[in-house]
Design a protein around this nucleic acid. Structure first.
Length: 464
RNA sequence: GGCGACGUGGCCAAGAGGCUAAGGCAAGGGUCUGCAAAACCCUGAUCAUGGGUUCAAAUCCCAUCGUCGCCUCCA
């Protein structure tokens, strides 16, 4: 397998620390507001990666954190007159529901910053002891000049960065780029006891501590959105490697940003679609298809047009799973062979694409080719028996991508018999060539969301 | 100002030195059908622009134009 590593900015052969096992840490959201579909995109990307590793036989330990203490959470909680912990809890619950709706496999562990205070404090103390950090008035800062490798992930040099250009520099810091590991508490803020007085962790340290606690000193993969490369992931590397003296993550994988009207979807710009809004208007698989259709590292633009394309593409995949035509009499052994050959070619093509830095777009192409050949065979009269192996493969490989190909479940079957009755009456109308009336039945049913499909053997129907 | 990514048919999007430039959506034509729908068949791009390297470039190099991301919280 080959994987693009942000650290080297190149495609590398993928190997694991331990044979057959993958440890993967993915940055989850800071829970201070409703999650938007950019968050969902990131979760989808790493869900697909994780599913593929499991398909390849790896035992995956997947950690996704929730950062549930931070300035913005406190700010929002104060605005809403809520307890900051309750606010975080609320958004965590909501996000977990969303993950389920998107068919995203639950991570092995979902640690939270507030539940790892001991590890965080231990780590900060260690960094101070080793000279990588220093306390000032109850704050603790990381000393970037002490870390010669600082900047290796984002490709920046400390001197090149114009810190203070857009934000005022805290004069107490030794260097403008030094960042907070611990922040002294202001009155009324949530705070924990520490050797430096009451306070709370800075933004980056919690991920380093949770990595250490749940995956160990070294991990295979660290992932997240590419907007986290700097400063978040750069700082995580600095903290973790300074603390352990070992290489931290071997592969850094970053997904591209979701864009709305040509700009990154983000809370600060306000051009966002919340997951809630999305799910109210679209099947969850639509977003997954959007993600699958393009490279995970590229920016992904979001529009109604593209959404509609994705929905049609899913319909196309589903068409491969339709049963044999009524009265199918079977296809020749040669026809069976064509089907079997395509199934083999599709499986190979799927694996070849996915092995190449998770080329989901190529993997989908392999699936669509299988769909076409299945549909050809069906049109030629293949029986369910003859279609079954290829269809099973289609279902299985779609499943590796996290697509269920199930139609949104219509739970109410109480109208089925009425539709059947109308079809029966329409059959009589057609037998008597009363086309206007029979077309009226079909059109009116279509308006109600029931699509009729006539064939030589009879009429079938499905919900639109 | 610094760092980085990208620009492939109407739309989305693979491909990263050399077989006919994948696949999906849309469109047009055809088969089937009473008409539809579904399915099947057929049809289209020389790869932002200009140079260069090479026997050979969408793929490498340089320049230009354009779009986007990071450098401040962000998936």
């Amino acid at each position: 397998m080959k994987v693009y590593n942000t650290l080297s900015r190149s495609i590398e052969e993928f190997t694991t620390l331990e044979p057959g096992k993958v440890s993967m840490y993915v940055c989850g959201p800071t829970v201070y507001a409703k999650a938007h579909i950019g968050h969902a995109m990131s979760a989808l990307v790493f869900d697909i990666i994780r599913r593929y590793f499991e398909f390849k036989g790896f035992d995956v330990r997947h950690v996704m954190n929730f950062t549930d203490v931070d300035d913005k959470i406190i700010l929002r909680a104060n605005e809403k007159g809520m307890d900051p912990f309750a606010l975080g809890e609320m958004y965590i619950r909501e996000f977990e529901e969303h993950l389920k709706a998107f068919n995203i496999l639950p991570a092995t562990v979902n640690p939270r910053a507030t539940r790892e205070m001991d590890q965080i404090i231990t780590m900060i103390s260690g960094l101070i002891e080793k000279g990588f950090a220093y306390p000032v008035d109850g704050d603790v800062y990381f000393r970037v000049t002490r870390d010669s490798a600082y900047g290796k992930l984002s490709g920046r040099r400390i001197d090149d960065m114009q810190s203070g250009y857009r934000i005022e520099v805290d004069e107490r810091k030794e260097h403008p780029m030094d960042f907070a590991l611990w922040k002294a508490a202001k009155p009324g803020e949530p705070a924990w006891d520490s050797p430096w007085g009451k306070g709370r962790p800075g933004w980056h340290i919690e991920c380093s501590a949770m990595n250490l606690n749940h995956l160990g000193e070294q991990i295979d993969i660290h992932g997240g959105g590419n907007d986290l490369i700097f400063p978040h992931h750069e700082n995580e590397i600095a903290q973790s490697e300074s603390f352990t003296g070992k290489q931290f993550a071997r592969y850094w994988i970053h997904n591209g940003m979701l864009q709305l009207s040509g700009e990154k979807m983000s809370k600060s710009i306000g051009n966002l679609v919340t997951i809630e809004e999305f799910l109210a208007n679209h099947p969850a698989d639509t977003l997954r298809m959007l993600v699958l259709n393009s490279g995970y590292r590229n920016p992904l633009s979001y529009s109604d047009d593209i959404l509609a394309q994705a929905e049609r593409a899913i319909d196309r995949l589903r068409s491969g799973l339709k049963p044999a035509l009524p009265g199918a009499s079977g296809i020749s052994p040669e026809g069976e062979k064509v089907l079997a050959n395509q199934a083999a070619a599709t499986e190979q093509g799927f694996i070849r694409s996915m092995d190449d830095d998770f080329n989901t777009s190529g993997a989908l192409a392999a699936l669509f080719e299988l769909v076409r050949v299945i549909n050809q065979a069906r049109a030629d009269g293949a029986t369910d028996e003859q279609l079954s192996t290829a269809q099973l493969l289609l279902r299985k490989l779609a499943g590796v991508l996290g697509l269920t190909l199930e139609k949104a479940e219509v739970s109410d079957h109480s109208v089925d018999s009425f539709v059947d009755l109308l079809i029966e009456i329409r059959k009589d109308l057609r037998a008597n060539k009363l086309w206007q009336l029979s077309d009226k039945v079909r059109d009116r049913l279509a308006e109600l969301g029931v699509v009729l499909e006539d064939s030589l053997e009879g009429t079938s129907w499905h919900w639109k």
